[in-house]
Design a protein around this nucleic acid. Structure first.
Length: 434
RNA sequence: GUGGGCGUAGCUCAGUCGGUCAGAGCGCCGGAUUGUGGUUCCGGAGGUCGCCGGUUCGAUCCCGGUCGCCCACCCCA
């Protein structure tokens, strides 16, 4: 309710007060931990990139959804909406000298100029993890394993989320087999992508609107209604190309089952991913309840690096945003415990003991304790109340009695027990941990 | 960009068919308790009822616009 609108926060952007930054930090730490376990190295790039980097990859219509402008030098620039083009550009310049495969991850802040909705803002942070230089399905499996672990490390499991997987090459083979003309392919992919939301009738209408033949439309509608692996294999058992296109996903599943992650996998013929540059296995992570938009999306993009002028290198990776994931954690009660503001709360009873208190605070801090004390005189009761509210483990009281006897009263705030500890011990650090 | 819903204290929300209707709970601050806390009791601060305009004797309440949030569409990270 700011009276001066000009100072209001921009729509779709967030402030991170400590309580909210704690969740973001919690998520980032889990992401970094998991990526390191898989041997990924962290990188970053500039948040502002040449507009052309995105136009080249996604076409002119992408500009509608970007934060873009001309800088003072007349360059057309954009705040990065995704990380993959930057990664491709970075690697295009130096991948030749690097050992393959390259395992890199990043947690960039990304921007899009779109109307915000739940789970979708104009700004978010996104974990990107990619393996570059390996075309085999082993890399695909490795990458989805990272994505699954990046979520499960936050306390969610098989009952909470699922990885829906598909293969662009398989979809193409099926479309060919069903008699979809090559010119209709992109349009049909878009309709399949929406099948979950549009429903069977909407899907049929969408296909009809494209001018797909009757027989092809019926075949596709059938697959969308029952896109299970067994049904697919049965339906196309006499089609060599389709059966061949099913092989990589079979191997992919075997690897992930060996890792113990098979329970997360679910084949889904309608997962095709909107981005044009995917060339092979694609996947999305969803909450099991199906209440939210995708937590994560990714797949194989073997042509992208040469598209931006690099050496032709196969690549596979994913992006996982902090917004939907954070909401899911909130819904499932998987939020991190609040971190106490301090370990020790120091109470000086009279101004005469203030110097002694500062000395003790200094010693405790030097030994790694987080220490707070009242900046202005207040009653002991009030200070203890503050200590309790801050979640301090101990209160250290220094009054005339302690000053006279050369001690500090150390009170355990959970149990209420307290002892007189010689101040010399605390200054030396011996009393720091108690 | 299109359509719909909503917008009252820091938070969650009540309320007025337009006339002491500006409230509750939680939170915050203070006191009971000037050397012992998370309970309890008492008190206090804090809102031009999103903003602008219109109708009216009078608008937080009705109307229009605007901004923001939410939902669906579009699009997808």
């Amino acid at each position: 309710m700011p009276s001066d609108k000009s100072f209001a926060k921009l729509p779709g952007f967030r402030d991170f007060v400590p309580a909210e930054l704690a969740l973001r930090t919690h998520i980032f730490e889990a992401w970094r931990r998991v990526c390191r376990r898989y041997g990924f190295m962290e990188y970053d790039g500039p948040p502002l990139e040449p507009l052309g980097l995105y136009v080249e990859k996604s076409g002119p219509e992408i500009v509608e959804q970007l934060y873009n402008f001309a800088d003072k030098g007349g360059r057309e620039v954009a705040l990065r909406p995704e990380m993959t083009p930057s990664l491709a550009r970075i690697l295009a310049q130096r991948s030749r000298g690097m050992a393959k495969p390259i395992r890199w991850f990043s947690i960039p802040q990304l921007f899009r100029y779109e109307r915000s909705q739940r789970g979708r803002l104009r700004e978010h942070f996104q974990l990107n993890a990619d393996i570059v230089g390996e075309a085999g399905v082993g890399a695909d499996a490795e990458v989805v394993a990272v994505a699954i672990d990046a979520v499960s490390a936050l306390g969610l499991g098989e009952r909470d989320f699922v990885a829906r997987v598909n293969d662009r090459r398989l979809v193409t083979a099926v479309l060919d087999e069903a008699g979809v003309a090559e010119g209709h392919r992109a349009g049909v992919l878009a309709v399949i992508d929406k099948a979950g939301r549009a429903g069977p009738a909407g899907t049929r209408a969408g296909l009809a609107a494209l001018g797909v033949g009757e027989a092809a439309a019926r075949a596709l509608a059938e697959l969308v209604a029952d896109g299970s692996w067994d049904h697919l294999r049965d339906r196309f058992r006499s089609s060599g190309p389709v059966l061949a296109a099913m092989q990589p996903l079979e191997e992919y599943r075997e690897i992930l089952e060996a890792m113990g992650l098979g329970g997360y996998l679910s084949f889904d013929f309608t997962v095709v991913r909107g981005l044009a540059y995917y060339t092979g296995i694609v996947f999305e992570l969803f909450d099991r309840a199906g209440e939210m938009r995708a937590i994560c999306g990714g797949g194989r993009y073997d042509r992208l690096l040469e598209l931006v002028g690099g050496e032709p290198l196969p690549a596979v990776g994913f992006g996982m945003g902090d917004v939907v994931l954070g909401e899911l954690l909130r819904d499932r009660g998987a939020l991190p415990d609040a971190v106490p503001a301090c370990d020790d709360y120091l109470i000086w009873v009279e101004p005469a003991q203030r110097s002694q208190a500062m000395k003790v605070a200094r010693a405790l801090r030097r030994h790694g304790r987080a220490v707070l004390y009242g900046l202005a005189p207040r009653g002991v009761g009030k200070q203890l109340r503050t200590a309790a509210r801050l979640g301090a483990a101990r209160a250290l009281i220094i009054g005339p009695d302690e000053a006279a006897s050369g001690t500090v009263t150390v009170r355990d705030l959970a149990s209420g027990r307290q002892d007189a500890v010689p101040v010399e011990l605390i200054l030396r650090g011996d009393g720091a941990g108690l």
